[in-house]
Each structure stands twice: as C-alpha cells, then as structure tokens.
C-alpha cells in the first residue's frame, strides 16, 4: 500500500523504520508518520468497534476531526491514530467501546 514512486511527488524520502505491535503482532512503520498510515500500509483497516452495536470503524477524515480512528495506544484509549505520530515500541490495539460520539 506504500507509494514508493510518485509521478509528481517523486520517491519518498528516507525515514527511520520503527517497530510497533498491533493486538500483539509485530509490525514496522516509519517514525513520525501517523499511526493510521503505518496500519494502512500493513493492511489493517479496523481501528475500533463501537460500544453499542460493535460495528467496526476505520479512518474516515484523516485529519483528527471524526474520532472514528481512535485506538488504545500504549494502554491509553481514545487516541486519534490519524494525527498521532508513530514511535518505536508503541503498542497499538483495537479499541472496543468507549470513544467519542458514534456515527450510527
């Protein structure tokens, strides 16, 4: 899913690779990129399940507005992964329930 060569933006710049875990499994991503980008690159699109109907949510606005993408990061729930930078050793887990107001 990574765009390594782009006709306008060129080759992507060298970034430091970091490791993180998602629901216990290890993955790599680039330091400082939004957590959601690293997940997307790894093919992970479900970020959380809503409280009432347990329906899945993923990235929706990508600019920190909708709260669909919140996850449990380093044990802390409700972290907006589309605007939170990835760091070495992060634990990123699917969130069940809680979160902001849900779009039904």
């Amino acid at each position: 899913m990574r765009i390594t060569e782009h006709p306008i933006l060129g080759a992507s710049e060298e970034r430091r690779t970091v490791t993180f875990t998602h629901d216990g499994a290890a993955y790599t991503g680039f330091e400082g990129e939004p957590i959601a980008a690293a997940l997307k690159a790894a093919g992970i699109v479900i970020h959380r399940y809503t409280k009432k109907y347990h329906s899945p949510r993923g990235v929706f606005c990508a600019i920190g507005r909708c709260t669909d993408c919140v996850m449990v990061v380093n044990g802390q729930p409700n972290v907006r992964t589309c605007v939170t930078p990835l760091a070495e050793g992060m634990t990123v887990d699917t969130q069940h329930g809680a979160g902001g107001e849900d779009r039904q």
């Binding site: 997307k40 699109v45 970020h47 329906s55 990235v59 606005c61 990508a62 039904q104």
Partner: peptide, 20 residues
C-alpha cells in the same frame, strides 16, 4: 460507517501527505 468509506479529503491526505 464501514472501514473503507472515507472522505475524499482523507484519501488525499493519505496518498499525498502520508504516501500510503
């Protein structure tokens, strides 16, 4: 609300800023 439905702006952010 399914993952995979998103705003066009979100898609743009992902591909042109995040390069995914």
């Amino acid at each position: 609300t399914l993952p995979g439905v998103m705003g066009a702006g979100a898609a743009q952010t992902m591909m042109n800023i995040n390069r995914v």
